[in-house]
Structures are given as C-alpha cells and as structure tokens.
C-alpha cells in the first residue's frame, strides 16, 4: 500500500521535471519529436529502476553511519556517507555502460531504439537526483525504493512526451521570433507544471 502511494506520488506530485526540474537539459534538447522522446523516456525509466535500488543497497550496507556493522561490531561507528556522491555517480556510470553492452548483445532491436540515448543518461541529473532523494527520504525497504524509481521514471516519460507532442504542434503556430524554440518551450513547461500542481495532496 505504502509502495503504491509512493508510486503515484512520484509520478504526479513529486514529478522529476515539474516539481524538481531534474533532467531539464535532455528534456529540452531531445523533445522535438514524440518518437525520440519516447526512446529517451524509456531509457531513463529503465536506468532508474536499476540504479536507484542498487544505490539504496550500497547506501544501506556500506555508506550510512553504522552501516558496516554487519561485517563486525567494531565498524559500527564508521560513517562513509561523505563518499555517497562519488559512489552513486560511479554506480550510475558503470551500470549505464553495462546495460548498454547487455542490450546490444541480447536485444539489438531495443538497442536500436535506446542505444544512442544511453550514454547521454550517465550525466542526466534525474538519475543522480533520484538516488540522492532516495537517500534523503530514507525509504524503509527495496520495494518502496523500486516503486519510487519506477514512478519517477514514468513521470519523466510523461513529461517529455507531453512537451514533445506540444512542440510538434507549435511548428504551425505563429510565435514571436524571439520566443521561438527555447523560450516558448520554457513557458509551456511552466504551464504544464502549473497543471500538475493540481495533483498535489492526493493520497491513496
């Protein structure tokens, strides 16, 4: 139940783009057509559901204050949490690389779809941001973390497909020249964020 709640919350209320602006760079750069944004959105979701739970386990059993006590009681006072940024980003970069190799080897059709986006994702702030939020909100088990990651990924996917669909239409509208492209994309994202604000507070 709690996991479902987190899932819904991270899609609509704590939306990565509209509430936290995470992953804006690729969101704006790759949202010119629905097809490519679909690919990128799927890739982000895919990487999120793998990296965030892995980082959760690393954080819980290696980095947190007292996390090492499962090895021996004498490590109970060790606090490695200052290393979390560097470990998280290394895990993200490493997993992205691994996923890329796996997908290329076992599913060429999926690779053709996601392949070009995967390297981009290592430095997508949504991925690292999700791991950092996971650490901050300290969820109680892997199930909750998984639903948080999946929800955030789907929320991001929704946002990028939404803006891409609108931008495809915008080509035919008469926009002041200085506002064309980036400017109007920002304003529309703002309007979409306002619409998503309406979801705030829903609880299952």
């Amino acid at each position: 139940m709690e996991a479902l709640n987190i899932f819904i919350k991270s899609i609509f209320i704590d939306n990565m783009i509209f509430a936290f602006f995470l992953g804006m760079c690729s969101y704006l750069a790759i949202s010119k057509t629905v097809k490519t944004s679909m690919g990128l959105g799927l890739a982000v979701t895919f990487v999120l559901v793998i990296t965030v739970p892995v980082n959760y386990l690393i954080d819980k059993y290696l980095l947190q204050a007292g996390a090492l006590s499962w090895i021996s009681e004498s490590f109970a006072n060790v606090d490695l949490s200052f290393l979390s940024f560097i470990i998280f980003i290394a895990v993200v970069a490493g997993i992205v690389q691994l996923v890329e190799m796996f997908v290329e080897r076992y599913s060429p059709s999926l690779y053709a779809q996601l392949g070009i986006f995967l390297p981009l994702i290592a430095v997508n702030c949504a991925i690292l941001g999700c791991s950092l939020f996971m650490q901050k909100r300290d969820y109680s088990n892997v199930g909750e973390v998984f639903s948080f990651a999946l929800g955030s990924g789907i929320g991001w996917l929704l946002a990028i497909i939404g803006i891409a669909a609108i931008r495809e239409r915008l080509k035919y509208s008469n926009i002041p020249p200085a506002l064309k492209g980036l400017g109007i994309a920002f304003i529309i994202t703002g309007l979409m964020a306002m619409a998503f604000q309406a979801f705030s507070g829903i609880k299952l």
């Binding site: 509209f18 509430a19 936290f20 602006f21 002041p176 020249p177 200085a178 506002l179 064309k180 492209g181 980036l182 400017g183 109007i184 994309a185 920002f186 304003i187 994202t189 703002g190 309007l191 964020a193 306002m194 604000q197």
Partner: peptide, 23 residues
C-alpha cells in the same frame, strides 16, 4: 516551480529580442 520556468522563458525572450542572431 512553474514560475521559475516562465521567468526563464521571459528572460530568453528579452535576450533574443536584443540578439537577433540567436533566434
């Protein structure tokens, strides 16, 4: 959050209005 995006859109608008080559 929405207003930050819209403000940035407006800043870009003004900036590009003055620098035509960036449009």
């Amino acid at each position: 959050p929405a207003m930050a995006l819209i403000l940035l859109g407006i800043i870009i608008w003004i900036h590009r209005g003055r620098n035509k080559e960036l449009q």
